[in-house]
Write a protein that binds this DNA or RNA. Sequence first.
RNA 1: AGGACUAUAGCUCAGUUGGUUAGAGCGCUACCUUGACAUGGUAGAGGUCCCCAGUUCGAAUCUGGGUAGUCCUACCA
Length: 921
Amino acid sequence: MDKTFQPADIESRWYEEWEAKNYFAPRGGEPAYSIMIPPPNVTGSLHMGHGFQEAIMDTLIRYHRMRGHNTLWQVGTDHAGIATQMVVERQLEAAGSSRVELGREAFVDKVWQWKEESGGTITRQLRRLGSSLDWSRERFTMDPGMSAAVQEVFIRLYREGLIYRGQRLVNWDPALHTAISDLEVISEEEQGHLWHFRYPLVGGEGHLTVATTRPETMLGDSAVAVHPDDERYRHLIGRSVHLPLTGREIPVIADDYVDREFGTGCLKITPAHDFNDYDVGKRHGLPLVNIFTDSAEISAAAPEAYRGLDRDSARKRIVADMESAGLLDKVEDHTLKVPRGDRSGVIIEPYLTDQWYVDARALAGPAIKAVENGDIRFVPRQWENTYFAWMRDIQDWCISRQLWWGHRIPAWYDDAGNVYVGDSEQAVREAHELAADVALQQDQDVLDTWFSSALWTFATLGWPEETDDLATFHPSSVLVTGFDIIFFWVARMIMMTLHLRDEVPFHTVYVHGLVRDAEGQKMSKSKGNVLDPIDLIDGIDLESLVAKRTAGMMQPQLAARIEKATRKQFPDGIAAYGTDALRFTYYSLASTGRDIKFDLGRIEGYRNFCNKIWNAARYVLMNAEGEDAGAGSGEVELSLADRWITDLLDATTRTVTEALASYRLDLASQALYEFIWNEYCDWYLELSKPVLWDEAASAAQKRGTRRTLVGVLEATLRLLHPFMPFITEEIWQAVAPLAGKGGATIMLAPYPEAGSTPADKEAAADIEWLKAVIVGVRNIRGEMNIPPGRELPVLLAGGDERDRVRLKQNSQYLKKLAKLRGIDWLQAGEEAPAAATALAGDLEILVPMAGLIDKDAEVSRLTREIGKLEQDLSRIGKKLDNKSFVDKAPTDVVAREQEKYRAQQQAVTTLKEQLVRIRQM
RNA sequence: AGGACUAUAGCUCAGUUGGUUAGAGCGCUACCUUGACAUGGUAGAGGUCCCCAGUUCGAAUCUGGGUAGUCCUACCA
């Protein structure tokens, strides 16, 4: 074995073997445990959020698999309609072509081609993370099975009246030329202006002043509204105003939607371009004047002067024209919320079109109930409130998209505009007995990507067939996801699955936090603070990192800033930490209800942890290989340390198991870290040395220590395997045979279970005593700068019979671990030599100072120690003097404080006497 | 405008039902290449648990009110 842990080669070797041997597939057993991966974008690549999420799922999956459950981790990818189409369109543009030029069929072929080319990236990356996904069942949201399921669902819901087609205002993306759902619109505050326009009253006397943030929409105004009770304008209701620049006259109407306090109290109404105005227009029977094309340029419905202008130019022109007409009252600065498309980033336009909708209200009821009654549980719980809030006020879901990449809507139209929904044109013709000469045209639109994702948990298992897999693995056990897609995906899965299958898609939703950068910023390409998990695994040099982060930047000045920041933050690039270290970092930061700030210091710490495990294993193998490690029938004698560490492993197993059950991977990883490093390595391995290296130790004793050494390591590796799959497998292969364990892989070895035997409290107490004495000596050594190699003589004083017994049993340990030359009891009446003092309970540990220890140094050390103790003593004293504490606190608490007080007092007395003695020297 | 979450060491974070000397890692200081490991060992320094009030014998923990930050939902032109 190498002296340091080298993850790269080990990782690829083991993953290939696991996959080749089909260890990831379900293997029967009871009960079933299944997780459906949130399908990543097929043409995407892995980011830190994926890394985090997959790591969590893999731990849960490996844990249940080792427990012998029938475990399925369903893998697959998503076709990601808009995102993927955009990428391919951009490629075409770069090549001087376009989607339109290519035509629909050729374009879709092109996308498929791109999917074939780039689709392997993300799945390769998933493998690098060690994700034990069942690749033999890999699915894609546009594969034939999924497509059939999507079609089936659409038709079924249509027949049930839960999908309908309607004309209304939608969120229109004028760059992508498609409708999008409410969720895909991001509204953020931006600096803008409020323009006050004068609309002259018809009849010649005066005007009304309206305030608007969108001057260009005035061309589509249908009315001016005032509040019905507004004294200022009441007399004008029913009159008309000239709509400037258009030659139209529009009425003054009354509607209590108007806020009298805002602006002038007069509101221009543009029913075709504003959601609220649309409602007002409906109430008053106002005409819809659509002044935009589908690219949000001024349309033929507007005066000729403005036609063809984009929104921004139109705005400038209109403001200028109003000003020169003397109709611009004033302009104020104003911050407003601007709605933008989450993909395109352009301003979204409310736009009147025909679209398909899902009646979400009807589906929401059962979905709410399922969470209310606990059929589905959110972890952490608080997300249920978010879910309820949204579900109780849910809007109908616009599912049609004017894209080419996606599931084509199974609807056909005849020339009269009648709609026929069915499996195919043929099926529709037959069902509706349409003559062959009736021309039918299929709907041009595709479905929202989330429509197919909503079917993910059951469509991947063969639905609409009632397959064995469905019966076995559905509902799935847990969904692991980020809060950002609770509405997009989680809620819709729940609604669809309950409706179509009358069962929940999963029993638990584990919601994890967002992975942010070290400053707490969201990672994004434009900020240039993105970390690629693969780079943390393999490492990357500075130049490559800079190149990667600044590639394909639209704005060069951004690239310069990113480069500077990157060079500053990673002057030496990023080291190769390996998958296990990366995963462990995720777990350690995965406390619930909290985002993760990814800190390089942590991953480095866990890389070191891997190395620690590696070297501990080297030590164990070094001492056990070729030796009798107690797996046979030879007599075995267990030492105190053996009993203690075995017990502690048991306690750790319990902690880890409980933490896993409550999705506290941070607590699980912490318990493992502490046990392995602070107990097994720091103490147990050291305690094993005196036995193994002692000529006088019996074969049975050595056998006992070797057996414990190997046995505890072997079990610990299994305990750790779901978290650190690679290093544990590599070491386990060498260690398991020594422990008498068989099996081809640790992956399928049983997960340790906490034993039922009561804790060996005596062993624990003895080890605590031992540690206290050793730490006492080390403290003196450390404070006095005595080299660790120098052996010290030690005298013991005070203490009771138990201390004497313990010393007798543990002197070998003490000598070795505290580097002692000899240990003697100070006889009664014997004068102690000048010595530095440490305490272990009532036991005094004296290290004679002769030639080693400086008097002043010891004086100040003792003084400091006494000071600390006295502070503590006075605190406890006050507590005990408080009558109501003694009266009201539970007796065991009081007793504990009293014992503490006695011990501290004793300690202070002893140290003070010692101080006096030293001073007299 | 509603709602959620967060605030603990210089930094990143734990702290379960109120009772610990408030912990870990990184960083820092000192000493040390001792036969698993310098990606290491030993020892040490470092905290007004955001502020105020309350409940309690006792509050980092419970209640109320602030402050600051992050985010979600809905939005008035």
